[in-house]
Design a protein around this nucleic acid. Structure first.
Lengths: 198, 198
DNA sequence: CCTGAATATGAATTAATGTTCATATTTCAC
DNA sequence: GTGAAATATGAACATTAATTCATATTCAGG
């Protein structure tokens, strides 16, 4: 494990930590992982090189940290959007919408996750494998609603594929709005209504 | 334009050119663009550095050359796999299978398209927008088979999403085989049979 | 205030790598 | 066979970038 970070133990340290994280978010999103140097990061964060290495022990470590944070945020957005809902159909709909809305608000997160395939393939595989597994567990809880004759792992990748690419469809638009999201979510649900649900 | 290559003018030169191309394919596919060095390439190709620069005037030049070659091959694979087929369902099935099989055989081709989001975002958008448009045109020809109550643009992105992510599912496996492809294609078609087709 | 721990600093180190070039060898059309 | 063009070679160059470390400063509990 080379991609480790270290929490600050002081208010001052925390400030430096946060400055580094913020700079990393902006720069990785703008220029990508390989084109962003530690130098760029510390310059933007207004911090010395040594300070960087107090909190992150490599360049990859910061990237890894951001990936985890974004994953958590996406999960959180989905959780909030679906809490209280009882039918799998409604959960799927609102989860899909929450994902696309998040991608619209934070296209950087979206980009960073996709890029991980080229930064570190293991990170990428790990990210989507974890997502798939949690998807499968959740789908299992709704046996009465979800078709039982389709492999759930495949279903999980299909649903991730739909979310990601329908998300792209929105991101390609010039000035996307919530109504655009509602539209594609609606259309997607038409397919899932007959194809996925009983 | 820095990404230029130069055809050999001799049998001997052609041999060197091909050795470089072959080495590039293997190494870029295994480690990705940034993690592969010119040194790695010439070592694998068994060629001197100077020889590399006779045929390609930069590292990017080789990558671009491979990109163009793969793009052509992808089109060809899809065309071959679906020619002669008459029902939209069969075209969709065989097109999906051909795409994943190709991605399995040439993972670089697959990676490269995703990577273009970070190399040149316009290229990426252009690629998928064009794909979507041609998908829509083709779907329109099968009004008797395809549901008419779903927006075709959304359908096109859904289908691209399924292909790409179910493809991922296969690529994540340790030693994927054709039977794995058949399996996920089958499962995907179950969803489309009820969800997309009449 | 004292003091050990935490944090900050940036020059120096180390390593990698893309590219050039002067020179040597080979090819092939004539 | 000849010679000009094509090809081959790899040491040298130039640049960039990640990481380390000795030293200085600041923090926070007692």
């Amino acid at each position: 494990m080379k991609e480790k970070f270290r929490h600050a133990k002081t208010k001052v340290g925390e400030k430096s930590f946060n400055k580094i994280v913020k700079a990393g978010k902006i720069l990785f999103a703008k220029s990508g992982y390989h084109s962003t140097s530690i130098n760029d990061i510390i310059a933007k964060a207004n911090v010395a090189v040594g300070t960087y290495y107090i909190y992150f022990n490599s360049k990859l470590a910061l990237y890894h940290y951001l990936l985890d944070e974004y994953q958590e945020k996406i999960r959180e957005a989905a959780r909030e959007a679906t809490q209280g809902l009882t039918t799998r159909r409604e959960i799927e709909r609102e989860g899909l919408k929450a994902f696309i809305m998040y991608a619209m608000k934070e296209p950087l997160a979206y980009k960073v996750i996709w890029e991980s395939l080229f930064v570190n393939q293991d990170l990428f595989i790990d990210y989507y494998s974890r997502f798939s597994k949690s998807y499968i567990e959740n789908l299992k809880k709704f046996k009465t609603e979800v078709r039982e004759d389709i492999d759930l792992e495949t279903v999980s990748f299909i649903l991730m594929g739909i979310a990601n690419f329908v998300g792209l469809q929105i991101l390609f638009k010039d000035n996307p709005h919530e109504k655009d999201v509602d539209f594609v979510v609606n259309e997607s649900m038409k397919l899932l209504d007959r194809g996925l649900f009983k």
